[in-house]
Amino acid sequence: MLDGRLLIDAHLHPARLSTLKPAWKRWAEQYGAPGWRSAFDDDGVIVPAAFDELLEAEGVDRAILLCEYSPKATGIQPVEDLLPIVKHNPDRFAFLGNVNPHLHYPVAAEVHRQVDLGAVGLKLHPVHGGFSAADPMLYPAYQACVERDVPVVVHCGTSTFPGSMNSMAAPELLDPVLRDFPDLTLVLAHGGRGWWYDQAAFLALMHDNVWIELSGLPPSRLPDYYQRFDLRRLARKFIFATDWPGVPGVARNARAVAALGLDDDTLGLVLGGNAMLVYFSRTA
């Protein structure tokens, strides 16, 4: 708990450092809070107990961990690397699966495999993976997520990592997916960061099953990013997330959200309630 509220961080990257490109490490050093390396051992591998203690100190009740298969941009961070962390404290840790249609075939089989490992959702990274979220190659993955009743998180924001394809980040690319899979829950990671805040907000307000995830967004800037919308209304579709380790602090970000002046009910949804609904309602 943080200041008496449930706190769920829905976007963390506890990756094995040896699997990552140099740009990822520079990003973590530039934007991360001092001491983020304390969760890793000398070989650059997360120490589950140390990571658990770090998040406990930040007031995090539950944390959703991400893997990634993006060899051109960040590297391959296999889902299996997350399993020891989750095993250490399954009450705090959960994880998202990840597929790249250039690497996984058939994609539906890989989705089912990762959900069977315990994934509470699927992350797609079109920008780092070099594909469109509307590519028909991904339709079997979407169908698998509908069948397994798990959400899909799609990176919808610019990336500065070499090899990124920022044209693939536009939320509007998800319009045919929403048309063809009306029962699919979609989460827009990074909330349209860069040029697409309006697109992300419009989709979230138009569709009950679309959410905006705040990873990588300074909370104090949210009123500016979504200035064309009623922030109090839009915030009811927000899911708190940080993009750890590239964040000045989880508790610091959460308190910055609290400082936006949202009503108590809405703030509770942003910091934990919406994530509980999207990721954990089927296992509750």
Rank of each mutant, 00 (worst) to 15 (best):
M1S: 14
I8P: 01
I8K: 01
D9R: 02
A10G: 08
H11Q: 15
H13E: 12
R16S: 13
L17H: 14
T19H: 12
P22V: 04
W24D: 11
A28I: 07
E29H: 06
P34F: 02
G35R: 06
A39Q: 08
F40P: 00
D42W: 04
D42L: 09
D42C: 07
D43P: 02
G44N: 00
G44S: 03
I46T: 08
A50S: 12
F51Q: 01
F51N: 00
F51P: 01
E53W: 06
E56P: 05
A63F: 12
S70F: 06
K72V: 13
A73P: 01
A73Y: 01
D81P: 11
D81A: 09
L83T: 06
L83Q: 09
I85P: 07
R92S: 04
F93M: 04
A94T: 06
L96K: 09
N98C: 13
V99C: 10
V107K: 02
A108T: 02
E110Y: 10
Q114W: 07
V115H: 04
D116N: 12
D116A: 15
G118C: 06
A119E: 05
L122Y: 06
L124D: 09
P126Q: 07
P126Y: 08
G130E: 10
A134V: 08
A134G: 10
M137Q: 15
M137E: 15
M137F: 09
Y139C: 11
Y142C: 03
Y142E: 07
Q143Y: 13
Q143T: 11
C145S: 09
V146K: 11
E147G: 00
V150D: 05
V153N: 09
V154T: 00
S159D: 03
G163I: 07
S167P: 09
S167K: 10
M168Y: 08
A169N: 04
A170V: 06
P171K: 07
L174K: 04
P182K: 03
P182L: 02
L186I: 10
D198N: 08
Q199Y: 02
Q199E: 06
L203V: 04
L205N: 00
M206D: 15
D208E: 10
V210A: 00
W211E: 04
E213V: 05
S215L: 05
S215T: 06
G216A: 15
P218D: 14
P219E: 13
L222S: 04
D224L: 15
K237S: 03
I239A: 08
V247F: 15
V247R: 05
P248T: 15
G249N: 02
A256V: 15
V257H: 13
L267V: 11
L267Y: 00
G268D: 10
M276S: 11
L277M: 12
V278F: 02
A284Q: 14
